[in-house]
Design a protein around this nucleic acid. Structure first.
Length: 582
DNA sequence: TGCGGCTATTG
DNA sequence: CACAATAGCCGCAG
């Protein structure tokens, strides 16, 4: 039954009548024009005019879990000033189930139905084989052969309200299959964590990503231009001035040479040859390697300084500001809820690798503050939780986990830290070697957890994180050095189970803050693997700081399933991201 | 024009 | 330079 009209109140009533309440799966599709369609049970609604408004009313009154194909739905609704509270994102859950990053409807549907994705029909394809009516009823999303209609996948569903509602109903079918698979993991004991909870938090993190992309990070443009100007001079008026600036910076390095010509500083081979002419022979010209050579020749110092300025000029300079910072002083980039590997969030436009020198430009708006919170030593604490190593869990009771580890190993704190990190990253060389042997006897359960992961990875077997995300191994058949490639895969696997689980906990924390912070006007403006930056009215700063700590306790308790590991956060209320912690 | 290598930054 | 990411410029193959 399809209805195309309805006031928000009528839509809420219809959903309630269909049994929608808190947490009920309610499918929604939406496009920027404002067309919205809903599906739940036998109810199908297509809302051509006031869709976003109706969605907001339903979210507010009934608190369903919105089932959508991807974060594009949330982005379309945000454009109409509507934000969903929680979601089941088919693409996000697909990434959990199968690993990797790509999660288009074809992949989602084919994997759930054991269909060969490569044999999926393609839009515009003629029925040359004369199979006659293979694509069946044009009003159905699913063809008789079980594949989704290719023209709908390409967006064809949006041309008709009835088709939009059918597309939403199809999402609901996929959701049910995904939920069954996740429930299976838990039943089979394939994972220790809660895969369905992971599906919910990762899905709601996609809503957060859409909001981060739309809202942006507050920037004081004048401060940013000041920092850039100090390094590379004032904004060039045209390409000629920009070229003159580059030449001026180059000359500062080249003047240290006997023959200051024929060297392209942007060409590593040229730089290497130049260094050899002044008596410095290095295998590559990376900064950490040249650092030790500063005293040997003045050109080294000049080169390292040049690199700093060049980095700002090319990557974080005026062009970057113009491209990524809006007139409203917000730095915007695309956000991804999970990368293709272990499942960390990623961001574009430099949001995740902003140089420390630029951070004073990240500034709260007038009357507002940032509340920043860093998780302390998240990876070793996560290792304790996912491996259930009792000695490491005990060490996590301390504010500084490395202190009890050092005591137990009989080494100093820096050595203990190196040993723990080396175990998690798979480092075997250097100073780590000796300390690692102590780790084996002190924390055997955690170390076995890691070595089992490394073995599986080296052998090419896929893994699942604590929460259930699939960690895919890649083919190394064609690798030049098979043993080295297998070892690399082992190190990746070893680390992915820790980094991936940490990313899961982090996102539970983030979506908890997102949900609980609304009443305080708190908006997350940056997620940085173990750090949250929240923007809120100045008078709520202290309350939001407390909220971040409370949410961490709530999130970690729910996430770690009784492991009893303590997680700690360093929280401060500041005006600029770079401000000293208070 | 696309891709691998090199280099930088971040967690 | 042990794990992950984004991003720019270069040389080179096609």
């Amino acid at each position: 039954m399809l209805s195309q009209i309805g006031t928000p109140d009528e839509v809420v009533a219809a959903c309630r009548h269909a049994g929608v309440g808190p947490g009920t799966h309610l499918a929604v599709v939406a496009i920027p024009s404002g067309l919205v369609a809903l599906a739940v049970g036998d109810l199908r609604l297509a809302l051509a005019h006031n869709g976003p408004e109706c969605v907001a009313a339903v979210d507010d009154a009934l608190r369903p879990r919105w089932v959508c194909w991807s974060g594009a739905t949330a982005a379309a609704l945000i454009a109409h000033r509507v934000r969903l509270s929680r979601a089941w994102d088919l693409a996000a859950v697909h990434r959990i189930l199968y690993g990797g990053w790509r999660a288009d409807p074809t992949r989602i549907w084919c994997q759930l139905h054991d269909l060969d994705r490569h044999r999926a029909p393609v839009a515009g394809q003629l029925d040359l084989l004369g199979t006659g009516g293979a694509d069946g009823d044009p009003d159905q999303a699913v063809r008789p052969d079980g594949y989704l209609r290719p023209d709908w996948i390409e967006g064809g569903w949006r041309h008709s309200p009835a088709h939009a509602a059918e597309w939403a109903a199809t999402a609901l079918v996929a959701q049910s299959l995904q939920a069954s698979m996740l429930a299976g993991f838990r039943r089979d004991g394939a994972v220790l964590g809660d895969p369905e909870a992971l599906a919910r938090s990762e899905s709601t993190a996609e809503l957060l990503c859409a909001e981060l992309a739309a809202d942006g990070l507050p920037i004081d443009i004048a401060v940013a231009e000041g920092i850039i100007g100090a390094l590379i001079g004032p904004r060039p008026a045209d390409e000629a001035e920009a070229a003159a600036g580059r030449a001026r910076r180059d000359a500062e390095v080249l003047r240290h040479l006997a023959v200051p010509t024929g060297v392209d500083l942007r060409n590593p081979a040229d730089v290497k040859a130049m260094l050899r002419r002044v008596g410095i022979d290095v295998p590559d010209t990376r900064a950490w390697r040249l650092e030790a050579m500063r005293a040997q020749h003045p050109v080294v110092d000049a080169l390292l300084l040049w690199r700093k300025a060049e980095r700002v000029a090319t990557t974080f300079g005026y062009g970057w500001l113009d491209t990524n910072v809006g007139a409203d002083g917000r730095l915007r980039g695309e956000w991804s809820g999970s990368d293709g590997a272990a499942g960390r969030m990623t961001a574009q436009a430099g949001l995740h690798n902003l140089p420390a020198e630029m951070r004073p430009a990240v500034h709260a708006e007038t009357g507002h503050v940032f509340v920043r919170a860093d998780l302390g030593q998240i990876e070793p604490r996560v290792l304790a939780a996912v491996s259930r190593d009792s000695a490491l869990c005990a060490a996590a009771h301390e504010d500084d986990l490395y202190a009890p580890v050092a005591k137990r190993l009989g080494v100093d704190r820096p050595t203990a830290k190196i040993a723990v990190l080396a175990a998690m990253y798979g480092q075997t060389s250097g100073t780590a070697g000796q300390a690692l042997r102590g780790m084996e006897s002190a924390y055997p359960v955690a170390m076995k957890f890691l070595s089992d992961a490394a073995t599986a990875g080296a052998e090419g077997r896929d893994l699942r994180t604590f929460g259930g995300r699939r960690i895919r191994m890649w083919d190394i058949e064609s690798a030049g050095d098979y043993r080295a490639a297998a070892a690399a895969r082992g190190r990746f696997a070893r680390n992915a189970l820790v980094q991936g689980a940490a990313a899961e906990l982090f996102k539970v924390w983030a979506v908890t803050v997102r949900a609980r912070g609304a009443d305080l006007g708190a908006r997350i403006v940056l997620c940085l693997h173990d750090e949250l930056l929240v923007h809120c009215p100045e008078h709520n700063g202290v309350a939001v700081a407390q909220l971040l700590v409370d949410c961490l306790h709530e999130a970690s308790a729910r996430w770690q399933q009784g492991a009893g590991v303590r997680f700690v956060a360093d929280v401060s209320v500041v005006h600029a991201w770079s401000d000293a912690k208070t």
